[in-house]
């Protein structure tokens, strides 16, 4: 059974995972082209997994907080997130590289070049958006 897809709607926060009959096509295309979902399967365009398993994209999507439980701690990347608090069995993490909504870019990659990248490397150009923060 699928669960938690519309937690954002129920708990009143902005998330990335959601179920809808018709999700926005640009968001679906993005997830598809990044290799996060297989967009050729119609059900995957309704049950959108979002970005919880792709932490390197979190800064780009202004994901500032991540929630996990003891049994899902391994899914939290400690190089990106640091724990700020706990509510019962839920750990609250804050993104060290949070980027606000609406940021300028001074570099870009052509769509064709991006398309030719192997699936495993497609997220790399996007890490450059926040990686400078480390230095």
């Amino acid at each position: 059974m699928k669960s938690g897809y519309n937690d954002g709607m129920v708990q009143d926060f902005f998330g990335t995972k959601m179920y809808q009959s018709h999700n926005h096509k640009n968001y679906v295309n993005f997830l598809d082209e990044m290799g996060i979902i297989d967009g050729s399967q119609e059900r995957n365009t309704r049950w959108l997994l979002g970005l919880s398993n792709n932490p390197y994209l979190h800064p780009l999507f202004s994901i500032k907080y991540l929630l996990s439980k003891d049994n899902s701690q391994s899914s939290v990347n400690p190089s990106i997130y640091s724990e700020v608090s706990k509510a019962g069995d839920v750990h609250i993490y804050q993104n060290k590289y949070f980027l606000p909504f609406g940021i300028p870019f001074d570099q870009y990659i052509d769509y064709d070049d991006f398309k030719n990248l192997p699936n495993g490397e497609k997220q790399e150009p996007f890490t450059g958006v926040w990686y400078w923060k480390i230095g």
Partner: peptide, 24 residues
């Protein structure tokens, strides 16, 4: 408990836009 966790985040961060994700 993620209900309480979200309430906590809203209390400490009243920013206009940010996302919260879950790996629960």
């Amino acid at each position: 408990n993620s209900m309480e966790a979200v309430d906590y985040i809203k209390k400490i961060d009243q920013g206009l836009f940010y996302r919260v994700d879950k790996v629960l």
